[in-house]
Simulated assay, not measured.
Amino acid sequence: MRNLDITTLRSFVAVADSGGVTRAAGFLHLTQSAVSMQLKRLEEMLGLELLDRTGRTIALTASGEQLLAYARRMIALNDEIITRLTDHAYEGEITLGVPHDIVYPAIPQVLKQFHAAFPRVKIQLEASYTRTLKEQFAKGECDIILTTEPEVDSGGDTIARKRLVWLGAPGGATWRQRPLKLAFCRYCTFRPHVTAALDQVDMPWEMSLDTDSDRTIEAAVSADLAVNAMIEGTEPPHMEQIDHDGALPELPLQLINLYGGRSAKNEVHDTLVGLLRNAFSTSQVGRLRAV
Rank of each mutant, 00 (worst) to 15 (best):
I6M: 12
T7R: 07
T7Y: 07
T8L: 06
L9D: 02
V13D: 11
V13S: 02
A14V: 09
V15W: 03
G19Q: 11
V21T: 13
T22W: 06
A24I: 07
G26P: 11
H29I: 03
L30F: 11
T31G: 15
Q32N: 13
V35Q: 06
K40D: 14
L42C: 13
L42H: 05
L50N: 08
L51T: 11
D52I: 09
R53E: 13
R56N: 14
R56Q: 12
T57F: 13
T57C: 04
A59I: 02
S63A: 15
E65W: 12
L68A: 08
A69T: 13
M74D: 09
I81T: 07
D87W: 02
H88C: 04
A89M: 13
A89G: 13
Y90D: 05
E91W: 12
G92L: 04
I94Y: 09
D101K: 05
I107G: 09
V110C: 08
Q113E: 15
Q113I: 01
Q124H: 13
L125R: 01
E126L: 11
Y129L: 01
T130D: 02
E135H: 08
Q136Y: 02
F137N: 01
F137S: 01
G140K: 00
D143Q: 05
D143A: 05
D143F: 00
I144K: 00
I145M: 06
L146W: 10
D157L: 10
T158I: 15
T158V: 15
A160Y: 04
K162M: 14
R163Q: 15
L167N: 12
A169L: 03
A173Y: 01
Q177R: 13
Q177T: 14
P179N: 01
L180C: 08
L180K: 08
K181V: 05
L182I: 03
A183G: 12
F184N: 00
F184R: 06
Y187G: 11
Y187I: 06
C188Y: 11
T189G: 12
T189E: 09
P192Y: 11
T195L: 11
T195C: 12
A197P: 10
A197F: 09
Q200E: 14
W205G: 04
W205H: 15
E206V: 12
M207F: 10
S208Q: 08
S208R: 15
L209H: 08
T211W: 05
D212I: 02
D214W: 07
I217R: 10
I217N: 05
E218N: 06
A219Q: 15
A226P: 05
A229P: 10
I231E: 10
I231F: 05
I231A: 13
G233Q: 11
T234A: 14
T234Q: 09
E235A: 10
P236K: 05
P237K: 04
P237L: 02
E240N: 08
I242T: 00
D243Y: 03
D243P: 04
H244Q: 02
P249N: 03
L253D: 11
Q254M: 15
N257R: 02
L258A: 03
L258T: 00
R262K: 09
K265E: 14
K265Q: 15
K265I: 15
N266I: 03
N266A: 04
N266V: 07
V268L: 07
V268N: 00
G274D: 08
N278R: 14
N278L: 11
F280L: 02
F280V: 01
F280A: 00
Q284P: 00
R289A: 12
R289Y: 10
